[in-house]
Write a protein that binds this DNA or RNA. Structure first.
Length: 362
DNA sequence: TATGTGGCTCGGGTTACATCA
DNA sequence: AATGATGTAACCCGAGCCACA
């Protein structure tokens, strides 16, 4: 059974109930869950059109990823593999330095030459991104503190290596990491450990803003974001993936709470109706002429064998298609488990139930 | 036209690390 | 200082889609 959960704009139809529909909806509108997610109007075709032209290293697979990133980097700039142990170099302005080609660190499989630092890491499975040799503590300090420099969204905290060459077309981004001593040790030992980067507040804020605009990225957007934030495209991609997952998780929690309240409401309504039914039965038993007086009859639904109270003056409503019914305004209205203020959600599909009982008493 | 293949992206799940109480 | 909880960056895997041969 597929349960469609959706909160948000109630005026928008739920479009993810079918598998293909889910995919389409996702591509066109971002997430199926529509809460606070804007439309991704430029995602679909443009993305497809760009797919074949851009190689930005989006693959989740590490090996592929590194290859892709390497390729992307190599297309932009010739890469000279650094075969010597990297000497820590104080960070300088990018205009004078060639950014350390992170792709050369792990993407050497592209041209088949693996050596030095590259070889050590490339040999290890995973080829994770934050595995460059860490800068010395002083450099690390600079890396961290550089986040707050300049324009709030033009952060520059990459680690650069002075090659003496200008790199006009090269990637600006290369290494963005805050180093931990533990990871440093592991790296020095050539161990395969994952170093974890914490994005700065500015980076996170900017990514959040972007996410509000579109929860998915096309390659161009990804590259632009990466360049703007001095992150690798892969990092931007991962951030968006994780962000979507977090959104969905939160949405699921909200939906669960909502369903719980709905269940409680329905339970209460059920209890009330049972009580009411009991009273009507009692009344009917004690007073044989009762049925003629309030013009109320009890009818049994043939399909679900439930008792429904219907007004005798009005046609008995037994099918979902019967939309004309007269309900006494004095009748206590049934509890609506899904009031309008609730997030958009129709738990039992958009089609009306096969039959429903009009609880109308007089 | 149908089919196989490779590339790409995604969601779901997991792991590993950083941070905090 | 040690430790458990929590958040999250990064990873792995399978599925779906598309382009191309």
């Amino acid at each position: 059974m597929e349960l469609g959960l959706s909160l948000g704009d109630a005026s928008k139809p739920v479009g993810f109930l079918t598998k293909n529909g889910a995919s389409e909806q996702h591509k066109k509108n971002g997430l199926g869950f529509c809460m606070e997610l804007g439309l991704n109007t430029n995602g679909g075709n443009q993305e497809l059109a760009e797919k074949s032209h851009e190689n930005d290293g989006d693959d989740d697979d590490d090996d592929d990823q590194t290859s892709e990133d390497t390729r992307a980097s190599m297309e932009n700039t010739p890469i000279q593999l650094d075969l010597l142990p990297r000497a820590p170099v104080p960070r300088q302005t990018p205009s004078h330095l060639q950014p350390l080609p992170w792709s050369s660190d792990n993407g050497s499989s592209e041209n088949g030459s693996i050596s030095g630092n590259v070889g050590l890491r490339a040999a290890a499975r995973g080829l994770e991104m934050n595995r460059l040799p860490p800068p010395p503590p002083a450099a690390a300090e600079e890396v961290s503190s550089a986040n707050s420099v300049g324009s709030p969204f033009q952060m520059d905290f990459g680690i650069y290596i002075n090659t003496g060459n200008e790199n006009p077309g090269g990637n600006d981004v290369i290494e963005t990491e805050r180093v931990s001593s533990r990871a440093s040790d592991d790296d020095e030992n050539g161990l395969n450990t994952r170093k974890k980067l914490r994005l700065s507040k500015e980076q996170s804020a900017f990514l959040e803003e972007s996410f509000k605009e579109h929860s998915t990225l096309n390659p161009k957007q990804k590259l632009a974001l990466a360049k703007q934030l001095n992150l690798r495209p892969r990092q931007v991609e991962v951030w968006f993936q994780n962000r979507r997952a977090r959104t969905k998780l939160k949405q699921t929690e909200v939906d669960c709470e909502y369903l719980k309240r709905c269940c409680e409401t329905l339970t209460e309504e059920n209890r009330r109706l049972h009580k009411e039914l009991q009273e009507l039965r009692t009344l009917k038993t004690s007073n044989p002429f009762y049925t003629q007086l309030p013009a109320t009859t009890l009818t049994m639904c043939p399909s679900c064998e439930r008792v429904a109270t219907t007004s005798a003056a009005a046609p008995t409503i037994t099918t979902a298609n019967a939309k004309t019914s007269t309900i006494d305004s004095s009748t206590p209205k049934p509890i609506n488990p899904f009031p309008l203020s609730r997030p958009r959600f129709y738990p039992f599909s958009q089609t009306p139930p096969p039959h429903h009982h009009q609880s109308a008493t007089s």
